[in-house]
Design a protein around this nucleic acid. Structure first.
Lengths: 131, 131
DNA sequence: CTCGATACATTGTATTGCTATGTATATTGC
DNA sequence: GCAATATACATAGCAATACAATGTATCGAG
């Protein structure tokens, strides 16, 4: 147990990329529910599969609580045949409206940033020169 | 002065959109300096013009300090003919490398989110139905 | 010499994602 | 029965960061 604590090496989230997620995870959670109800862990897996967006359990539940408190989601306990009850979340009408708005804002926002970094992206290849 | 304090009505930043900016503003500031040195307020105006990205003065200076402390920027006081000295910031080699990396990460990240919200965007038009 | 504009800077607050835990239920092995 | 394991939901404390509000300094105009 001397220094087995390198555990985090692959678990560690780049703090910058953690910051990037701020705000987008609410959008992502709502978007995940767009096509039908899912329960908490299922949302995690959905996001990881569909968008390579990895978030911790400790992250998703507070988000879902917040969204529910805002009236964007409703939840319902459902018994599972194997295992323990699951809390399924569904979009409310208000949630549906919100995610549409968020999506539109996001498209603009990301396009703006994209335009901003375009010169940086265009630069590619010049790095080789240095060798 | 009774309730002139509606001041914020147009000054108010949507808290969600404030969250969206987290992390991206460091990238934006570095990107603004890609084509040459600028001073603080000039960066604000550049971002507002080029990317509709509005940030408060109280936001840009801490960012520049952070980036400088990380060795991504250098700064230099320059006398202005009219007015007060300006602190011009320039990218270091390390900063140039960082912004290239950030730009690449951003492109991936935004593409992932875009894919996620695509079904929501496709939904457009259905809202009209309600009228 | 005061007023306003420009420019840089700091302080306190709120939001939010993450790590580390904790709790409950059901299944499996003995 | 009962520990061990897996699934699922939940909370507490921490860290990062954008913002509003404020403060300081310099210069030009009147």
């Amino acid at each position: 147990m001397t220094f087995n604590n390198q555990k985090s090496v692959e678990n560690l989230t780049d703090p910058w990329q953690a910051q990037l997620k701020k705000g987008t995870l609410e959008m992502a959670a709502l978007a995940a529910l767009w096509s039908g109800p899912l329960y908490g862990l299922e949302i995690l897996r959905f996001l990881e599969t569909k968008s390579e967006l990895v978030l911790a359990e400790g992250t998703i539940y507070p988000i879902l609580s917040r969204l529910k408190k805002e009236g964007l989601l409703t939840s319902e306990w459902v018994e599972a045949e194997a295992g323990h009850p699951r809390k399924y979340y569904s979009l409310t009408a208000s949630g549906r409206e919100r995610i549409r708005h968020m999506a539109a804002v996001w498209v603009d926002f990301s396009a703006n940033l994209r335009r901003l970094i375009q010169p940086v992206l265009d630069h590619k290849g010049q790095k080789e020169e240095k060798r």
